[in-house]
């Protein structure tokens, strides 16, 4: 009983802390990278304080409503998205001590990332408005396309560890990180991660061509919550990528949690750079590329990883 309670308290605290810091880090990185890519002068205090000012503005802003919106599901959508991000982050081992040992951790992570589709669709649907609904439809098509590569590369990473437990996968990278051992893994994962956190090139559900899409009718606190939940999803997928491909807490000199934070921030920064550098791809192009290229490549990747893992076990 007490064991159970301690586990819940420790996990909740660590996930809450990681999400808060991660969301803040994401927003600051977004500002810094955005300004430096645009060639504008960088003012560090503005970048550090700016997120709070923006959040305060959104908190004070009046919240608009549409005619006969489905207000219950509209309120559920950002909460669900944030909860999914937190639930996904719970199985990512942040330090060797706070690793929640779930024997099917990878499947669990895949399930939460599949549920992101539900949250985004609900957010688009509930507004009872055209552009958000189209955004919701878009995300369903997009999610059905990136879901397979996402799960396949994670399963390939589980092969050398001979376990679906994420902590075991981190331990299996003691000698060699998966980013080297499985060179195809991280690029495929990053594409899928951009899709799942609907950013930049894959920010199709709330693209500018849809006049904001799923967020077109959001304002005030609702917009703030939605953006925070989106950043939380980005943090969760980045942390998972850092654990599965970059060796998680493994690293010399520094304590494990610092390494994990640095690697997560590196992946977040990579995705934010992609957000600012690349233009939005068209949905039909992405769906075709995903089913014709990404999924077969991911399958080949699984087979190769399996052969390598078998050879290693055999020798």
């Amino acid at each position: 009983m007490t064991d159970w309670l301690v586990m819940v308290v420790v996990t909740t605290t660590s996930v809450g802390l990681a999400l808060t810091l991660g969301i803040y880090g994401t927003v600051v990185l977004d500002r810094v990278i955005g300004r430096s890519i645009a060639g504008e002068p960088l003012r560090l205090t503005r970048a550090l304080v700016g997120p709070f000012q923006h959040a305060a503005l959104l908190l004070l802003q009046q919240r608009s409503d549409t005619e006969r919106s489905d207000s219950a599901t509209w309120a559920v959508a950002p909460a669900l998205l944030g909860a999914l991000a937190a639930a996904a982050l719970a199985v990512v081992p942040l330090t060797p001590a706070v690793a929640l040992e779930v024997s099917s951790g990878i499947v669990y992570f895949g399930a939460t990332m599949a549920m992101v589709m539900v949250a985004v669709f609900l957010n688009g649907w509930s507004a009872n408005s055209t552009f958000p609904l189209i955004g919701g439809y878009r995300f369903v098509a997009q999610a059905l396309s990136f879901e397979m590569p996402l799960v396949l590369v994670l399963i390939a990473a589980a092969l050398p560890a001979e376990s679906l437990n994420v902590a075991d996968i981190v331990r299996s990278q003691d000698t060699l990180w998966n980013v080297v051992r499985q060179p195809l893994g991280l690029p495929l994962y990053l594409i899928a991660a951009l899709g799942v956190s609907f950013l930049g090139p894959l920010g199709l559900p709330d693209g500018i061509d849809l006049a904001g899409g799923t967020v077109a009718e959001l304002s005030g606190t609702a917009l703030l919550l939605w953006r925070a939940a989106q950043a939380a999803v980005l943090v969760a997928v980045s942390a998972m990528g850092a654990a599965v491909f970059l060796g998680g807490w493994l690293g010399p000199w520094l304590p494990g949690s610092v390494w994990m934070a640095l690697k997560t921030l590196l992946l977040i920064a990579l995705m934010v750079v992609a957000k600012h550098l690349f233009g939005r791809v068209r949905l039909e192009r992405f769906v075709v590329v995903s089913w014709v290229v990404l999924i077969p490549v991911a399958l080949v990747h699984v087979f190769l990883s399996g052969i390598l893992a078998l050879r290693r076990i055999g020798s």
Partner: peptide
Amino acid sequence: FLGLVLLLMLAGEMT
């Protein structure tokens, strides 16, 4: 495993 696979499947299915 079974419960999680069920969750994984039904997100897409219900949407």
